[in-house]
Amino acid sequence: MLEQLRKKAKELLKNKEVEVIIGYQKSNNNSFTTPCFIESEDGVDRLTWDEHCVYNLSLYLKEVKGKVGIVAKGCDVKSIVALMQENQIDRDRIKIIALECQAQVDQEGQILEKCRTCQVHIPGMYDELVRSKTSPSKIESKESDKEYSVLEELEAKSTPERWQFWQRQFEKCIRCYACRQVCPLCYCSECISEKTAPQWILPSPSLKGNTTWNIVRAFHLAGRCIDCGECERVCPVNIPLRRLNKKMEKEIQTMFNYVPGLDSKKKPPLVDFRVDDPQEFIR
């Protein structure tokens, strides 16, 4: 797969179809990988592909100008779709080198929670596709029908219990905003948390401000979050943010039969206005 990936990347650079390729390279910090930006053909040998390529590189698409190639997994492609829906990137200037991905692992080598129920091992949109040669053994063992099982424990709790759970989580928040910064869909040039007049969210790391921040972020991602799980991965204090977003995803799916990141032509339900909306008040 790696050979093919490098070959395709090389071709894109050679034919001047892209000026830069965003991909993964080995990190000299440890055995993991780190995002890299390759601008010349001889740089493509730096590209790597293994189960440590956790990053959602679509995060960088907005800030890299010009024609750009991106190495993307199925989940990453979903965020590219969402970014297109929201006018943030121009599909014409992007070449997607999609990779068939079986699963990614965390620092301890455990398969990531999101990968266990993954339904986009083969990305839904791409310009080039690199298929896996190995048998999809890992994929078969996945529990794709248990998409929302991660929520069961919390959903079983009573409202006060659930509130208590989240209060304990939000208490830990240090407001480093890594969740926001790593999120491809948190692209606002000024975040609502930075607004001072009026101040929607208290800026200091207090329980009150932290609660508002995390809940507002979940709401701003409702119907948009494509579940790359990056926010939870980077949270230095282990707040289970994916559960928040997953819950919103579930609600949106139940109410509007909509899953973000699958179809760039579809309008996200929360930013849609329809004259034929069945609810009287909206007209």
């Binding site: 929201e86 006018n87 943030q88 692209y187 040039s189 000024e190 929360l270 930013v271 849609d272 206005f273």
Partner: peptide
């Protein structure tokens, strides 16, 4: 416009077509 990130969610929800990019 300093704050606007151009997602144009506003355009989609405007019942009067009053918003353009």
């Amino acid at each position: 416009v300093e704050i606007c990130s151009g997602c144009l969610a506003c355009k989609e929800v405007c019942p009067f077509g009053a918003i353009e990019k």
